[in-house]
Computed example of a mutant assay.
Amino acid sequence: MKNQKGFTLIEMLIVLAIITTLLILLIPNLASKNQEVQSKGCNALKKLTENQLQAYVMDYGTYPNKVSTLVEKQYIQSDTCSNGKKRLAFDQAGNNEIIIVDNDG
């Protein structure tokens, strides 16, 4: 008879228990980092938009009325952060500074 090597049922259950334990520890950690990653992505979009705003001013000699004009003129692809909860807008003081605001307001 051949000597077959392989996992026994007990060994397989132990491996599955270890993998399950690692996943239980890892998933909450990933979820808590999501907000931080979204925030960094939104800040990067803000910096890109600020640079493209300067390119727009050099091309047209004036600031646009709203950030969405940069999207329409294809200076940026989107004025909304990747999670869709925040967007870019000009501040209300009228000094053409770009700020991050909630998408609903």
Rank of each mutant, 00 (worst) to 15 (best):
K33P: 03
D91N: 15
T69E: 00
D104G: 06
L88C: 02
E50G: 12
G94F: 08
V37P: 00
Y56E: 01
I100F: 06
E50K: 13
V101G: 01
F90R: 04
E36K: 02
T8W: 11
S39H: 09
K33A: 06
N103K: 12
N51I: 01
I76G: 08
T20N: 12
L26N: 03
A31V: 15
S39A: 13
I76W: 08
V37T: 06
L9N: 08
L16K: 14
A17R: 13
G61W: 01
Q54I: 03
K33F: 05
K5T: 07
E50Q: 15
K2G: 07
G61L: 01
P28Q: 12
C42F: 05
V15N: 08
N65A: 14
I24A: 07
Q92E: 12
G41A: 11
T20Q: 12
Y60L: 00
Q52N: 01
D102I: 05
Q54S: 07
L25S: 10
T62M: 03
S82F: 10
V37R: 00
E36P: 00
G6T: 04
N51T: 03
D91K: 13
C42V: 06
L25N: 10
L88W: 02
N34G: 11
I19H: 04
G6L: 05
M1G: 15
S82Q: 12
L9H: 08
N103L: 09
F90E: 04
K86S: 04
K46C: 08
V67C: 01
I98G: 03
L9P: 06
L13P: 15
A93E: 14
K47N: 11
P28K: 11
G41D: 10
Q77E: 14
S78M: 11
K46P: 02
Q52V: 01
S78N: 12
V57T: 03
A93L: 14
A89P: 01
G61H: 01
E72T: 09
K40N: 07
F7D: 10
D102K: 09
D79R: 01
K46V: 05
A44H: 09
V71G: 02
K86W: 01
A55F: 01
Y60Q: 00
I14Q: 08
K40W: 03
